[in-house]
């Protein structure tokens, strides 16, 4: 005879759920998700937008960078519920519907700004956000390195990415 009773299996998870609604790449979405679901997982697992990559999950690598109300931010350091009511843009929204690359993507292609491509979505979103800000861009080596400092790349050695930022500025008439 067992000395203690086994705990009954709960009939539902203790993980609280919450309704979230936001606009993702121009489309209104609503889901009921765990309050502890990260925005990165919401995009990837709930919406199937796997272009947003997940590297470190503590804000260091920058792979998961998306635009939150037009500003670059870490989707791994944002809960899905925090983004309730936000306008979110991911890498899937950057190229045109017919597949024509965005000038930043075109510049990465021309300058060999990627090898394995894992960091590229975060890089592109971060750069696109800066290019959408008004005012003069700092296209010095130091200025571009500062722009890229929150995104890690383990393949390229960064020089081709720096070149790609300059090329993108040319393509966008911002050089």
């Amino acid at each position: 005879m067992a000395r203690t009773m086994k705990a009954a299996i709960p009939d539902r998870s203790a993980d609280a759920e919450v309704d979230v609604s936001m606009t993702v790449n121009g489309e209104a979405v609503s889901r009921s998700v765990s309050v502890r679901m990260l925005l990165s997982d919401f995009l990837r697992h709930e919406l199937g937008l796997t272009g947003t990559h997940v590297g470190c999950e503590h804000g260091v690598c920058g792979c998961c960078t998306v635009l939150l109300n037009g500003r670059a931010g870490r989707s791994c350091l944002t809960l899905a519920v925090q983004a309730n009511g936000y306008d979110i843009r991911t890498i899937e929204s950057v190229a045109a519907a017919d597949g024509t690359l965005h000038p930043v993507q075109q510049a990465f292609k021309e300058c060999h700004g990627l090898q394995c491509g894992y960091c590229t979505p975060g890089m592109v979103m971060n750069i696109v956000a800066r290019f959408e800000e008004p005012g003069k861009l700092d296209l010095s080596d130091e200025g571009i390195r500062d722009l890229l400092s929150g995104n890690l790349c383990r393949c390229t050695g960064y020089l081709n990415i720096i070149a790609a930022v300059r090329r993108a500025a040319e393509l966008l008439g911002r050089a």
């Binding site: 920058g62 670059a72 931010g73 870490r74 929150g150």
Partner: peptide, 9 residues
């Protein structure tokens, strides 16, 4: 202070 995407949030 960290990087722009961190300072944005």
């Amino acid at each position: 202070v960290a990087h722009v995407p961190i300072r944005n949030r």
